[in-house]
Simulated assay, not measured.
Amino acid sequence: MTRDFQIRPITPAEHDALGEVSIRSYLEGGLLLKGLDDPYAPNLRDVALRAASSTVLVAADERGGEDGALLGGVTLAFHGSPMAQLAGPGEAEIRMLAVEPAAQGRGVGSALAAACVEQARADPGTKSVVLCALQDLANAHRVYTRLGFARATDLDWSPVPDVLLWGFRLDL
């Protein structure tokens, strides 16, 4: 499949736009259990905070020129970053992967996750990549499995009662 988007680092001018893409993605996916009042929503919107201590990558639509519309984004946090929830020593963590609902099915999420793996591989101290996803997100699990991730039950956790996040790990 030919990609009509590019994966690149976010620019500060795009922080607000990615925050809104993230909100729409999580809302449409049913991932914000309390809608816009969900306590996780401000974290999704605050891309500037993510970018201050992590790598934030975006997928930009090439059909829109150099400043094409954002189709999605992801945060890659290395161990020691305040954004890392799961990453231990020698690990990087994929967080807040979001794809604009209208762009889903174009391979944007897979490309963003693959770009994170490549960024982690480029860091000589990183030996594995970890992430978590809701246990019922079968499509996301398939994407991660295709990239070589395996279930890591030692990373499973519940951010709030009745919500189980499954952990995944890819050894580099």
Rank of each mutant, 00 (worst) to 15 (best):
H79S: 14
G72K: 02
A111F: 03
R106F: 01
L170Y: 07
E100V: 01
G35P: 01
D38M: 05
L131K: 02
E118M: 10
L49N: 14
V130N: 04
L44W: 02
A13I: 00
D4R: 15
K34L: 07
R121G: 04
G80Q: 07
R151F: 05
G107S: 10
L33K: 12
A122D: 08
N43S: 13
G68I: 11
R63L: 13
L76N: 03
V129F: 00
T11M: 11
V99M: 09
S22C: 10
L97K: 00
T55W: 01
A51T: 07
L36D: 08
T2S: 14
G68D: 02
A120Q: 03
L49C: 10
V74L: 05
R106W: 06
R45E: 06
T126H: 04
G109V: 02
T126I: 15
A17E: 14
Y144F: 13
A102H: 10
G167K: 06
W166N: 06
S128K: 05
T2Q: 14
R169I: 02
R8Y: 11
E14A: 12
P101N: 04
I10T: 11
L172A: 11
D37G: 08
N139Y: 04
G30V: 02
W157N: 14
S110E: 14
L33P: 00
A133C: 12
A77V: 00
G68S: 07
A77T: 05
G65T: 10
A150K: 15
L27E: 07
D16W: 08
R3H: 14
D136F: 03
L76G: 05
S81P: 00
G73S: 10
G30Y: 02
D4T: 15
V160K: 12
D123T: 06
R45G: 07
D123L: 04
A115R: 09
I10Q: 11
L70G: 09
A48S: 14
A122M: 03
V160G: 00
E28G: 12
Q119R: 15
W157H: 15
R63N: 13
A17S: 13
L36Y: 05
D46N: 15
S53A: 14
Y144Q: 04
L71A: 06
A102D: 14
D154E: 15
S110L: 12
A140Y: 02
A138W: 11
P82L: 08
P124Y: 03
A48Y: 05
M1V: 13
S128N: 07
L44G: 05
A138E: 15
D162I: 00
F149S: 06
S81M: 00
A69G: 14
S158R: 13
A115Q: 11
P12Y: 04
Y144A: 05
H79M: 02
E66H: 07
P9R: 15
